[in-house]
Design a protein around this nucleic acid. Structure first.
Lengths: 218, 218, 218, 218
DNA sequence: AATGAATGAGGATTCATTCAT
DNA sequence: AATGAATGAATCCTCATTCAT
């Protein structure tokens, strides 16, 4: 106060922190409203009430309704991405293909199970807005798999005139099929679990992909 | 009532037929509004207007908004079911496993493509109501596959105390994995086609499942 | 009821009449809210309340807020137009220029005074939306004046190469000046009356325009 | 305080100057927001943001929203008044009536054109608040014109019992008519220019008023 | 003086549903 | 059976204003 020109203003931070806290409160509220009332029930007023703020305050932090939901989804996707990438990476050096596939399947199921409630809303109710987000996410897994294929595939036979192009096309198709199948199977398992042992399902999924990969990696 | 196809009692029937026609008109309207304006845009008033009836009349045929959408979805599922069952049945006698799988994959893709617009809305925007319907649909395919496995599997070893139960469990798991995977892959292909030849994708999906089935049918 | 196919359905009319009545009630309400609370205070809810209907009903008759206000303004303009045109027409045969101008000035003032409250809101508070309406209105008076000039102007000297074009340009400018001046003077008089006899002001305005017209009609 | 131009007491003055600067910044911001977003878009928050201050600070300088806009308008009126008065004064000695009128018309048009954007907002969108201001402005021109008439009118016949009162009344009416007409014509020309040469319009306006003045100054 | 977070009433608009006719 | 006018709570969002810091 006596030196207003200085840059040592510790006074300001509490406010910024309060802001940050409010943003956090809104995001938490949005998450929980999303889970408890579904996508259609996630109104700005409801989110604001759940966050303990006024409807007007909401708009000090987010430009509109979709903005919050976007962030909630993005955060979720980010968490999933990190978890899955970690699991996947620690798998690249695994000599046994079966063990590697199994570990990834388990990691995916665990990751999705961790926030199953939100996943359900996202998978079942989320309208166009998050399409971009979703394909982004899937794209990320595509890339992981490209790495996987590059590492695992012993000889891609880079010689031959049409070899590379044919190989690329194949690779893209293989990755596409694998990623969609594995993503959907694990999500289906988490959201709509069959009356079958977890072990058994994991085993079947592993067999499915191990067989395919074996055929495709030769 | 027991002979709904007859034209007896012409005094009453016109009304019932008119009723039936109105129901039809409402369903057609709901379908087209669903496709053209999306799930959120499918309001009762809009559907009534498109059907050429008053909002009040709507409630003479359906108890509430979700009832119409349910029927639209159910009809869609029914059509899909019929189409898929036909294709599947005509495949049971096919000696080549590869050819049988390929034919089914193609049949699914064709079936889903036929009403891609509605499928997109259902897959992307449809909230809770259709969950039941969706699993019903999937269960139907489960059953088809159970038939398939029973026919194709040469020796199920039905003897042994734990044999049947283990075999059943296995079968259920195999069916579950197969059905989810094939359904999701074909739907993904229709709604979000990859930049890859149709032939190539169909081939990869076929390889995936043929390999798995070969392993599981032994 | 016993002859539903016939076209003698007197039953329907009460409803249409009720509709018409509601529209009328909304318009009256909009008018009075406009006058009593100003343009900014003319909210849809306020208008609906004043009309004794629910906010939702409002939108059965008008697509949005501006639509009602447009109709209110248009009706006002229409009334003014009719009144002014009548007065003007009955003036065309008046041999004395002074008497003709005076009669028109008086007619304008009377017309504007009749709905001075609304005129005040329109003149003072009305945002862009009604610009079109306003120029339309003024345009109408332009045309009246064109008629006036055509009738009164003894010889427009249509011969000579540049004569007509020069004459037209002149005419347009004369009409523009006259219309704006007379419109604004009479409106100003009604909305912001000077501490001067009505007679005196009317006289001065008449002198102003009679002099100008005399100069321009020769 | 009695010598506001001095720099004594430097400890306090910076604050007052900073205050003054802030007020200036707010006024400038209000002006530009008014022009760029219209009357309805001129919210306090927007003005504060444009001025680079917090919404709270705004209320340290102005009691409410209308206060700023009032000052903006007052300043505008003040500028116009000064400009017009100058032009008018330099015209009082002009021997030719036509030249004097023409010079004033041109001066008015130029003055209004200089801030046409703000003028448009004020003329078209501004609700009740400025009514007072507007008539104040017009009254000022009334007074100017009274001076003009007093100077130009050769013999006001100040003798006679009813002479002065009649003369005053006359003068007031003449001034009223002239001021409203000239103000509105020039503003109309600036805001809604007709498809006619500037020269031609100026000429017509000049003819209109010269004729009238000639008649009234005899 | 200044901040900026917070407010909450109010804005326009939609929509599933009801009900008198 | 059908109508369609009416409802009113709920939607998203804005804004003038306040107040703890």
């Amino acid at each position: 106060m006596s030196q207003p020109g200085r840059l040592t203003r510790a006074r300001r931070e509490p406010r910024q922190e309060r802001s940050r806290e409010t943003v956090e409160r809104i995001l938490t509220a949005a998450h929980s409203v999303l889970v408890s009332r579904g996508y259609e029930g996630a109104s700005t007023n409801r989110i604001a009430a759940e966050a303990g703020i006024s409807p007007g305050s909401f708009y000090q932090y987010f430009p509109d309704k979709h903005a919050v939901l976007d962030v909630v989804i993005e955060r979720y996707a980010e968490r999933m991405r990190a978890r899955i990438t970690d699991a996947f990476m620690s798998t690249l050096t695994e000599p046994s293909l079966d063990a590697a596939v199994r570990a990834n399947v388990i990691a995916l199921i665990n990751a999705f199970e961790e926030h199953a409630a939100l996943l359900r809303v996202l998978a079942e109710q989320l309208p166009r807005s998050a399409d971009a987000r979703r394909s982004e996410f899937t794209h990320h897994i595509d890339e992981l798999l490209a790495a996987f294929l590059r590492v695992r595939r012993p000889s891609q036979e880079p010689e031959g005139p049409e070899g590379p192009s044919a190989g690329n096309t194949d690779n893209a198709a293989v990755a596409w099929v694998l990623v969609r199948a594995v993503e959907n199977l694990t999500i289906s398992y988490v959201l709509d679990p069959p009356p079958v042992d977890r072990e058994t399902i994991i085993n079947e999924i592993t067999v499915l992909f191990t067989g395919y990969l074996t055929a495709r990696l030769t």
